[in-house]
């Protein structure tokens, strides 16, 4: 793959970006990713089908912690420190549900954040894309498409033309650093 750069194309509207995706594919190139200042409806589905099981991870972690919290309460109230409060059963399960619910919700949220970072490959404080002039506008008001040239397109010229024809303002080659 050495010498074959990826191309980053800058668009001014999300519509232009979305129109460019099938065009690039029809020309035989590979669409790698898109970078936009806000979530563009349907764009992620068009670009890659990969899904991370965020919610499943959250559910499992939340449930595990809630069960652990319940067991801790049961152990402390029934075995380690049994105390008769007004004749109530030592194993007062209805009120023992409150603490597991609260702490389970919090840990599920924490697991969700960790899973988000994990599946996004973050934290990644530097990326070759950050070196592309103008890429800082991806979080402000510009829409970027990252594409990889087909094997037949040695220097990426064909891909560059495809992107420019699709309405890209600027097309920059991204080099590995």
């Amino acid at each position: 793959m050495i010498g074959q750069g990826k191309m980053l194309a800058e668009f001014t509207t999300p519509e232009a970006l979305r129109r460019a995706v099938p065009t690039v594919r029809r020309a035989g190139h590979r669409v790698v990713d898109a970078f936009t200042p806000y979530p563009v409806e349907g764009l992620a589905e068009e670009i890659g089908p990969s899904r991370a099981p965020l919610r499943l991870v959250m559910l499992m972690v939340g449930l595990a912690v809630a069960i652990a919290a319940y067991l801790l309460q049961w152990y402390s109230a029934v075995i380690a420190y049994p105390m008769n409060t007004g004749g109530r059963p030592l194993h007062s399960w209805p009120v023992f549900l409150l603490v597991p619910f609260e702490i389970g919700m919090f840990t599920a949220a924490l697991a969700g954040l960790v899973a988000l970072f994990w599946s996004c490959g973050l934290p990644r404080l530097h990326d070759p894309l950050f070196a592309v002039p103008g890429f800082e506008r991806a979080t402000q008001d510009r829409f970027f498409l990252l594409a990889e040239a087909a094997a037949s397109d040695q220097d990426g010229t064909a891909l560059r033309h495809v992107l420019e024809d699709a309405g890209a303002r600027v097309v920059t080659e991204v080099r590995r650093q």
């Binding site: 990713d33 898109a34 970078f35 936009t36 200042p37 806000y38 979530p39 563009v40 764009l43 992620a44 589905e45 670009i47 890659g48 990969s50 991370a52 965020l54 919610r55 988000l116 970072f117 599946s119 996004c120 973050l122 934290p123 990644r124 404080l125 530097h126 990326d127 894309l129 991806a138 979080t139």
Partner: peptide, 15 residues
Amino acid sequence: FGWRGSARHWRLQRT
């Protein structure tokens, strides 16, 4: 944390 606004990141963040 290195957020780049990638389409995939957006989808996960929205979820």
